[in-house]
């Protein structure tokens, strides 16, 4: 069984690299895309918040697989237009399409996490910041965001694991991530053990993420802070 692992170490490493980079890039870019969405969602401007809500609802209501297909195959239909715009090099590559789908998808989920976190920031901290003469942006960057990120740490860990699992979907659009390598090796050998090797890979990464998060959460003071008045 292990011969599939030892004979193809380079394939598995390539797979792991793809899986990990898709997941990390997806979460990180997703986070930055989530910031304006969360801000719009909380904005007093009802049109802005409604647009953001619609986006979040559409993304969360449809399967990620359909979103990936829509971007990879669906936009591929407009390749002459995309060529005209000079964007075809991006959408031609399955990895890029998968990553774009992850970013758009994760942004919606992370925006909701952020929104919940921002709403839970103790009012006194914001008022204290304003009293010290900080501008709105400074209050957001220096007070709201650190508290929110700290408080939302468990939810972000969850999102990271979910995105890691979801990253296996790109194997369907021919990306050679861990799952993609397993499918490739299975097509050659018809030996099921390659899927168990892939399973072991995912299990180890998830356990590592969980261990790391336990550490981060243990350190985080905002997680245990009940909020003064």
């Amino acid at each position: 069984m292990l011969s599939h692992l030892t004979d193809n170490v380079d394939l598995w490493i390539e797979g792991l690299t793809n899986t990990v980079s898709l997941t990390l890039l997806g979460v990180i870019f997703g986070f930055f895309a989530a910031l304006p969405i969360a801000a719009a969602r909380l904005s007093k401007n009802s049109i802005l918040s409604r647009i953001a809500y619609t986006y979040v609802y559409l993304v969360r209501g449809t399967p990620l697989l359909v979103q990936i297909f829509l971007i990879y195959y669906g936009l591929g239909q407009f390749h002459s237009e995309l060529k005209g715009l000079g964007l075809w090099w991006f959408f031609r590559d399955a990895f890029n399409c998968g990553l774009l789908a992850f970013v758009l998808n994760s942004a919606a989920y992370q925006a909701e996490i952020l929104r919940g976190g921002i709403l839970a920031v103790p009012k006194g901290a914001i008022e204290a910041g304003t009293a010290l003469g900080l501008t709105k942006l400074q209050v957001f960057r220096k007070i709201i965001l650190p508290i929110t990120i700290g408080r939302m740490l468990p939810a972000f860990g969850n999102e990271l694991v979910l995105l890691l699992k979801a990253s296996s979907l790109v194997s369907i659009i021919t990306v050679r991530d861990v799952m993609g390598q397993a499918r490739f090796l299975f097509a050659q050998s018809f030996d099921l053990s390659v899927y168990y090797i892939a399973a072991l890979n995912y299990l180890v990464i998830v356990l590592l993420i969980e261990a790391l998060w336990r550490k981060l959460e243990g350190r985080n003071q905002w997680l245990h802070y009940a909020g003064g008045r």
Binding site: K165, S168, A182, L192, Y195, A199, Y202, L203, L207
Partner: peptide
């Protein structure tokens, strides 16, 4: 719980499908 929460659904699906069959 740990195993089935950690594995991608796609992988679980494929393993169950082929393994059960064999």
């Amino acid at each position: 719980t740990t195993i089935f929460r950690s594995l991608p659904e796609l992988l679980t699906l494929i393993i169950i499908y082929y393994q059960l069959q064999s």
